[in-house]
């Protein structure tokens, strides 16, 4: 790993200031960025840690029925603190990586990286979350812009994520056992008047909504409602772990299982 200057700000304002340099990069829990830097695929000159900022920590609910999660909150904390208010999300957080990874990795780091096989993008898109940064609020539908690509500008950091709490939800993850990322994962969330379905791990364009399933499930929230639908395998990820056709089928299977398990 190339060397860098390390900054550990205690406020969002100080973090934003430290990120002004050309080659400065924010550091969440580092569970992706540190391995990437070891491979010299990233070589920032300044690394700005976001995990010591109290204003970016913690989980709470607001009057609008949203679960508000500080950008630097670890997966382990979300798994623990969302268990009663939003069990579908707690289940997702409790199955990211492994226990040691969950004690470091953060929701903001996951969403900022937008790995096409990461779990949190499915929850953010599947709930229609609001991604709050130091500059603005971005709806999930506008935020995800393709594989490893987001609406974030240089030096912009995710301070909070607000997820509308559904009546019922589940995330069905078909695990790629070596990496523990999702080979394909489907997040289904049922709200009073609509259903959202978001898929990760499958598309070459990153996380996406499966509109046909959303329409069918909004009419009838039962796994049979999607039984006759199919997903076009074009533009699905095709690698040694699974073919595009296999992934397309997993989208449907994962959706059906999520509907059955939603709570």
């Amino acid at each position: 790993m190339h060397n860098f200057d390390f900054a550990k700000p205690a406020t969002i304002a100080d973090a934003v200031a430290a990120l002004q340099g050309d080659e400065a990069q924010p550091l969440g829990g580092g569970q992706t960025l540190i391995p990437t830097m070891k491979q010299r695929l990233a070589a920032p000159e300044v690394l700005v840690s976001l995990t010591h900022i109290p204003d970016m920590q913690g989980v709470c609910t607001n009057d609008a029925g949203q679960l508000c999660i500080g950008g630097a909150t670890t997966h382990a904390t979300v798994a623990r603190e969302a268990a009663s208010s939003f069990p579908g999300l707690a289940h997702l957080a409790a199955h990211i990586g492994d226990p040691a990874v969950r004690n470091r990795g953060t929701i903001g780091g996951s969403l900022a990286n937008n790995d096409p096989s990461a779990c949190y993008p499915a929850a953010a898109l599947g709930t229609g979350a609001t991604i709050c940064t130091n500059l603005r609020e971005i709806t999930a539908d506008d935020y995800f812009q393709g594989m490893f690509d987001t609406a974030l500008d240089e030096g912009e950091i995710i301070t909070e994520v607000r997820l509308p709490i559904p009546q019922a939800a589940h995330y069905e993850k078909f695990v790629q056992p070596a990496s523990r990322f999702a080979l394909t994962g489907v997040f289904v969330a049922k709200y009073q008047d609509h259903v959202r379905v978001a898929v990760t791990g499958a598309s070459e364009n990153g996380v996406f909504r499966w509109a046909d399933a959303e329409a069918a499930l909004s009419q009838s929230f039962a796994s049979d409602a999607v039984a006759d639908l199919s997903v076009d395998p074009d533009h699905m990820i095709h690698d040694l772990h699974a073919s595009k056709e296999y992934r397309a089928n997993l989208v449907k299977v994962g959706t059906m299982r999520s509907v059955k398990k939603a709570k």
């Binding site: 382990a76 226990p99 004690n103």
Partner: peptide, 21 residues
């Protein structure tokens, strides 16, 4: 996971945490 240690009571992988943290 051979490098797992506890930091403030939580298991973490010491090869994927900066000493400065």
């Amino acid at each position: 996971g051979a490098c797992v240690v506890h930091v403030d009571g939580q298991a973490i992988k010491a090869c994927t945490m900066l000493a400065a943290e």
